[in-house]
Nucleic acid binder design. Structure first.
Lengths: 118, 118
DNA sequence: CTAAAACCTGACGTCGACGTCAGGTGCAAG
DNA sequence: CTTGCACCTGACGTCGACGTCAGGTTTTAG
């Protein structure tokens, strides 16, 4: 696949894909003309990268985490990094649940105050 | 309370509190010398603001959401905004769960491959 | 009263994840 | 061959949430 198609299918910009390559998150081969060529799995990989970004992880961390998703092999230090990130996610999910609950309460309470019953 | 104490208790910088005030997220009165004075509830409010930031919400959205946490009163448009944010949180939590699971699998799998039984 | 600490208002610096523009090249169609 | 779109490599711009520094004022401790 060429870069435009990957971008379209993964729902990101061409610029983003080039940036991921700079950050060493996504690799490509080149055709004789110098244009990037991607395997089919690239789309899935880009989606994963996006999810990791949306978790608030910086490129640096993603770069360290991605090899696991590929190989499943880990050194002890990276196990600690993964565990730490997992714990961070747990805390964040707890916060999210709390705030969500708070907002949900606001919504239902507002609906009750609302003139639903005229 | 003065700004330094609020910052210390909420675990943020003095600069951040002044920034929140600029963004109209946090208000203060002034003493005759021109220094900011905060009520006790300010600490809790700053913690909430931090949680909302950590969810990836920009100041603009937080500014629109905060009044609810205070009053529990809502206009229909803001109900939609809240519901949309809630849905976004749900999706993000699903993603978080997936990635977390993926990482957790990597961890346990790596531990099994490990020489634990030597 | 004096020195130090805490506070004040600008205003510029930073960092990450791209957007965007400039100027040139590759490639498929007629 | 030429048109035209997709692609290429720099390189600068942006935006948000502050950090930080300069230069001055207020509060507090002794």
């Amino acid at each position: 696949m060429r870069i435009g198609e990957v971008a379209a299918q993964a729902g990101v910009s061409v610029r983003a894909l080039r940036y991921y390559e700079q950050q060493d998150l996504l690799h490509s081969t080149r055709n004789p003309g110098g244009q990037r060529q991607y395997p089919a799995g690239a789309v899935e990989r880009v989606r994963l990268i996006q999810q990791l970004y949306s978790m608030g992880l910086p490129s640096r961390t993603i770069r360290e985490v991605l090899p696991f998703a590929d190989s499943g092999e880990a050194s002890p230090e990276l196990l600690e990094l993964l565990a730490a990130e997992r714990d961070r996610l747990d805390r964040q999910m707890t916060d999210l649940r709390n705030v969500r609950h708070r907002l949900h309460d606001c919504i239902t309470e507002a609906r009750n105050h609302d003139g639903t019953g005229t």
